[in-house]
Simulated assay, not measured.
Amino acid sequence: MAKKMFVAQLIAGQQFQEVFLVARKSLAETKAGKPYLALGLMDRTGEVEARVWDNALEFEPQVEEGGFVLVQAVAKPFRDQMQLAVITLQSVAETAVDLADFMPASPRPLAEMAAELEAVIAGIGDPPLRALLSVIFQGDTLDRFQRAPAAKKLHHAYIGGLIEHTLSIVALAAKIAGHYPFIDRDMLVAGALLHDLAKIEEFDFTRTPFGYTDRGRLVGHLVLGVEMVRKAAEQVEDLRAEQVDRLMHIILSHHGQHDFGAPVLPMTPEAILLHHLDDIDAKMQYMGGLRAKMSGSGWQWTEYQRHLERYLYLRAGGEEEQAAATRVAQSGATGSEPEPEPGPEESIAAPRAKKTIDMRQQSLF
Rank of each mutant, 00 (worst) to 15 (best):
L133A: 05
D140V: 13
E94S: 09
V92W: 09
L129A: 10
M82R: 04
L99C: 02
H165A: 08
Q90N: 12
L89K: 08
F68K: 06
K76W: 07
A114T: 09
Q90W: 06
G125Q: 12
P104N: 01
P149W: 00
L57H: 05
L117K: 01
L70A: 10
D143C: 05
F68R: 02
F59E: 01
Q138C: 08
A93K: 14
G139P: 08
F145C: 00
P149F: 06
E65R: 15
T141W: 02
L167C: 06
G160P: 02
I159N: 06
A111F: 06
K153W: 12
V71P: 04
G123D: 14
V86G: 07
I159Q: 13
R147L: 15
A115L: 07
A73Q: 07
I136E: 04
F102H: 04
Q62G: 03
A114E: 14
L110M: 09
A150I: 00
A122E: 15
V63T: 00
R130Y: 05
H156I: 04
D98C: 05
V120L: 07
R144V: 05
K153T: 13
A96F: 05
I121E: 01
I124E: 03
V92P: 08
E116S: 09
K152G: 13
E116T: 12
F78Q: 09
D98W: 02
F137N: 00
V71S: 04
P107N: 10
T88F: 03
G160E: 01
P107Q: 09
S106F: 00
R79Q: 13
Q62M: 13
Q83A: 13
D140K: 13
A119D: 08
G125D: 14
H155D: 11
V135F: 06
L89F: 11
M113K: 14
Q62F: 09
K152W: 07
I163C: 08
V92R: 08
F78S: 12
A131S: 13
E94M: 00
D80L: 13
E116Q: 15
D80Q: 14
F68V: 01
G67A: 15
Q62I: 04
M113S: 12
G123Y: 03
L129M: 14
V97D: 03
T95D: 14
F78A: 12
A111E: 14
K152H: 10
L57W: 02
A150S: 14
F137K: 04
D126K: 10
G66K: 03
P128F: 01
Q138H: 10
V86E: 06
A115Y: 04
D126L: 11
A151G: 11
G66Y: 07
I163E: 00
R130T: 05
R79M: 12
H165R: 09
K76V: 15
L99M: 12
T166L: 02
A73K: 07
P77Q: 10
E64G: 06
F137G: 02
A100C: 08
A93L: 14
K76I: 13
E94P: 00
T141S: 05
A56R: 03
A73R: 02
S106C: 12
V135M: 05
P107V: 07
V92N: 10
R108W: 09
I124C: 06
